[in-house]
Structures are given as C-alpha cells and as structure tokens.
Design a protein around this nucleic acid. Sequence first.
DNA 1: ATCGTTGTCGATAACGTTTTCCATGGTTAG
DNA 2: CTAACCATGGAAAACGTTATCGACAACGAT
Lengths: 336, 336
Amino acid sequence: MQPSSRVTIRDVAARAGVSVATVSKVINERYGVSAATLARVRAVIEELGYEASLVAQSLRNHRTNVIGILVADLEPFSTELLKGAADAIRGSGFELVVYSAGGRTGDPVGWEKRYLSRLSGTLVDGAVLVTPAVSLEAVPGTPVVAVDPHTGPSHLPTIDSDNLRGAQLATEHLLELGHRRIAFLSGRPDLQSAELRKTGYLRALAAAGIAADEALIRIGAYDPEVSAASAHALLTGPDRPTAVFAANDISAIATVGAARELGLTVPGDLSVVGFDNVPESALCSPPLTTVDQPIREMGHRAIRMLIALINGDEVGPTHVTLDTGLVVRHSTRALS
Amino acid sequence: MQPSSRVTIRDVAARAGVSVATVSKVINERYGVSAATLARVRAVIEELGYEASLVAQSLRNHRTNVIGILVADLEPFSTELLKGAADAIRGSGFELVVYSAGGRTGDPVGWEKRYLSRLSGTLVDGAVLVTPAVSLEAVPGTPVVAVDPHTGPSHLPTIDSDNLRGAQLATEHLLELGHRRIAFLSGRPDLQSAELRKTGYLRALAAAGIAADEALIRIGAYDPEVSAASAHALLTGPDRPTAVFAANDISAIATVGAARELGLTVPGDLSVVGFDNVPESALCSPPLTTVDQPIREMGHRAIRMLIALINGDEVGPTHVTLDTGLVVRHSTRALS
DNA sequence: ATCGTTGTCGATAACGTTTTCCATGGTTAG
DNA sequence: CTAACCATGGAAAACGTTATCGACAACGAT
C-alpha cells in the first residue's frame, strides 16, 4: 500500500472488490452499475484520492481536453485576449496551453504551422491563432479559429472586429476636429486588420474630399520601435501633419513619445488616435483617444467557438465581427 | 493509404519494412540501428509526415513535457511573469499550460491544491505557483516552485526578490525628500512579499526615528478597488499624509487616481511610490517612482529551476532572491 | 571447428484507461 | 415449468508508444 506511485484504476477496483470496468463506469457515469456498488466505488475513490490519468484517457479517447493558443508575442493586445480566453476556458473542462513565439523575426514563415502539426491531435484538440503570420488551412481533424486573421483568403473560422468602421470613426473624429493633414501609421501588412484600418482611413479622407498624401503614410508594423522611427520621420519632415492616426495603441503611444522627444506636445501640437483600446491606452499620458475593440470578448468568443467546433456542437456563424467604437480621451484636440 | 486517421509508428514501420521497435529507436536516437536503416526510416518518417503521439509517449514514459503555471489572476505582475516564463519555455521541449483562477474570491482556500492534485503526474510534470493563496507542500513526485510565496513556513523551492530591502529603499527615498507623514498601503496579507514590504517600511521609519502611525497604515490587498478606497480614506482623514508608499504598483496607480479625484496633484500635493516596476508604472501619469523587481527574470528562473527539478538535474540553491532597486520617476518630490 | 563478441533487429509486455460484448443470476410472462 | 428478459458485472482488446531481452548473423581469435 506504499503510495510510491500513482493510484490507478486498478487499485480502486481491487479495494472495492470490483473490476476495473465497473470503476470506469462509475467514473464516467455509465449505465449498468447498481446503486450499492456505485456508492462503494465512490467511497473508495474518495478514500484513495484517486484521479483518473488524463494521459491514459486521452490515448483511449483521442481527445486531450487541451486547447492551444498561439500568439506571436505577449504584447498588450494578445495579453488582453489571453485574459478573455482564460476566462472562457475556466470551468469548460479544457486546459489552455499558450505558446508565444517570442516576437521572433528570424522565423521566415509558419511557426504556427509547425507547431500545429506537431501538437494537433496529440497534445491539443484545437487551437486559436492570434494574428497569425500565415494564412493556413486547418489541419484536418483539428479545429482552428483565427483571431484578427491573416490577409489572404482563408476559410478558417474567424473572430475579428469591425476594423473598417473603426478606422473611419477615428479618421472622421480627426476631421471633425478640423484636421486636414492627417498621417497614418500602418500596421502589420500581413494582417487583414491592418489593411482594413488603412482602407477606412483612406475612405474617410476621400469622403471628406481630401486627397491622400503618400508622404503621410508610414509603416508602423504594430511595433513600438518601428512606429517611433516612422513618427519621428513624419514629424521632422516638411509640412508636418497636425494629427496622426496610428493603426494600434502601441504605435500611438510610440508616436506620443516621439512627439514629446521633439518638444511637441500632445494634443497641443499634435493629435493622436490609436486603435484597440488596450488598458495601457487609458493609463498613458495623455490618455489616448482610440478605437475600442472588445478584445476580451474576442478571446472569449474564440474559445467558445473552438470548443463548439471540437465538440461538434452547433456553431453559429463561423465568422463573427464585433463592433468597434470611438472612445475619446485626451490625445486629440480641435485644430486651432 | 487514406489519411483518415493519424499516421502511427506502425505505418512507418510497415512502409520502411522494419519493426516498430526499430522506428522507435531511430526516433529516440537509441543505439543499435545501422546507418542504412536509420536513413531509410528517417526518409519514411519525412515522407509520411509522421509525428509521434505525445500522449502515447507520455503514458509510456510517465512524463508529459508539460508544465503548469498557476496564477490567481492575470494582472500586470503575473502577466509580466508569464512573459518571462514563456521565454524560458521556448525551445526547452516543454509546453506551458496556464491556469488563471480569475481573481475569484469565493474560493475559500486551495484551488491551487485541487488543480495540482488533479493534474499532477497526469497532465503536467511540474508547476510554478505564482503568489499562491495557500502554503502547500509539494505533491510527491511533482516538483513545484513558488514565486512570491505564501507567508507561513513552506519548504517549496522559491523565487522571490529582496522585498525587505526594496521597501526600505522606497521609504528612505521618501524620507530623504523630507516626508515625515508617510502612509503605507499594505498588500495581500497572506503573501510573504506583503509582510516584508511592510517590515521594510517600518524599519526605515524606525531607523529615521519616526514612530509608526497606525492610522497611516491601510490595507491595499494588491487590488485596485481596495486600494482606491483605502487611499481615499487616507487622504480625507485628519492630518493627511504627504506621501504614500504602496505595496505594489497597482495600488500606487489607484492611489494616484484617488488623489486626483480629490483634487490633489501628484507629486505636488502627494508623493507616491509603488513596488514592482511593472510596465504600466512607466506609462502612467505621472510616471511612477517605484521599486524595481526583475519580474521577467523571476519567471525565467522559476521555469529553469522547475525544469532542472523535473529532470533531476543539479539545481543550485533552492531559494533564490533577486535584487531590487529604486527607480525614481516623477511621482515623488521633495516636501516643500 | 569452436567459441565468444559485436552489431542489428524484432517480439512483446507494459503504461492506465474505455468500450464492447459476453456471462450470470434473478425475475417475469406465457 | 420453461422461455425470455433484465440488471449487473467482468474479460479483454485497443489506443500508440518504449524498453527489455532474446535471436541471429558475421566475424575474429583460439
């Protein structure tokens, strides 16, 4: 009776004087065990502190009850998304393994693909891909849902938000404040969201009868360093913009930093609006006017949809787009 | 040859004209296979895109190559720690499952314990406990390392930082600025860190010959709401403090908020120093003077130590305390 | 020739479950 | 009194690996 090794179903069976089959039945609440034995087996399980081996169950059932979430890096957006996912996973009977690529740039393409093919069906039952770097099709047998998907056609189930409208809202806000020279700091060119935000910006400009100035469009790549550099260039160039719409909050915050370094004040000398409404945007100085995207909700939905997919449950629309909305804080001001 | 189901080691063996045993040997680079067959089997593996079933391996090896990280909630501290952990895990051959209790308060005690007993040895090979709510001993056979451990004696391997010294540094900084009425917003009373920060505060005061005023010590619980309420009480009480040392950055930021609501400016009317140096502390307004704790490094170390423990490798000291240091930003000012 | 050695390889028993199917004994219907 | 049935329980195969151990051939040394 040395508890040197794990207590197994066999131990329980022996102690309860039944077969392992019966024990298995009580664990899984199968039909065909009398009330008396059920009680007895339950008692023994309790007594021995028996926990079924998830590994053995997985092997037998072809189901691990683990789902993966793949992020390029743990920056504010994916962190926030992770919170939503963690919320949704709780009590679902699944566990969540997170894999962060660590913002590596050296990897040419498709760490997601490799990861997925290695783990699918053997460690995870499904995965959510956050801002995937590649447009991949699902591994057969392993459901995948994408959040903020890759550009390029893909038929993966998808969660995103209304990037187009959000970008229009942001740009219109700036226009209403009287700004005319509005720069745009673009996002990661391989992401649909980035493309749509740019389109939204251009449309709003066009609708206002303003010709887009290529010199005012720079790459931000959703990255602080890149954004800071671009913002610097923008602000030291000839005829500098009076406002910039950054494709995400990270870029916006970097822009504020760059402006400050140049002795410009926000929103005094420059209005800045971001996108995402990550918690940092409310905290930073000045609090950022930005486009709200219900990030946590997106994480929540992604997990719920994935679980439905895994269970073969009825899953509603396979592509859901959540609303965006402008939240005005203090990084924008009417042009004087 | 229908790829309806996963390709198994048996398929590879058949195609290569060898036994499964041999295939297993080449997978695990065991001795006893000729160069010729090795090459052939490798080729077949490549051709069929075979990936060994982690589940089956786990069952056989009693090792899952998964480690768990348990956090009470994904607030900035644990998020930052998670980044360090994710970094450390990459390329280690392990996967990371994160479990967040979701900041639930209803759970009396020991969700960690339950989680661990359910998963240990069956899904995870070991776990790191972040700010554990309970002082538990290791599950036999499942290594555990605690980060910022529970108060109360425990012999778990531990990573923490020099909380005592950090708190003294913070308090001394305030003293040097001429503050005498320095309030303290305490942390989660069940955590060693909280206790030590309080002790540090008290010692620094004592060393300066200042009697601690119980009215200036309030509970912050590392929680924004609780902290805001306590800060409000502190600042509206009689003879309000000119400075507050908050037991973590979250509390400090909440304090700044409370002050602002009361029409007080920081650092003009009130100096505030935090603890942790989470990224938010640099971002917020005003940028927070705080005590730096190498959070990511702590996550990194925790994972590395855990892996060593799992592998039975030589693990150095089983309790490591990292240095803390004061970082002065703009939330503190000399008393005028 | 005989005997160990060395180098390859394969049969097989685990690992801890779940499920299918069969056996048993008791009960009810005819 | 027999036939059919139901309720309960167990034997055993399977899931996909890995480790042990024995088989066998080739070979050099005696």
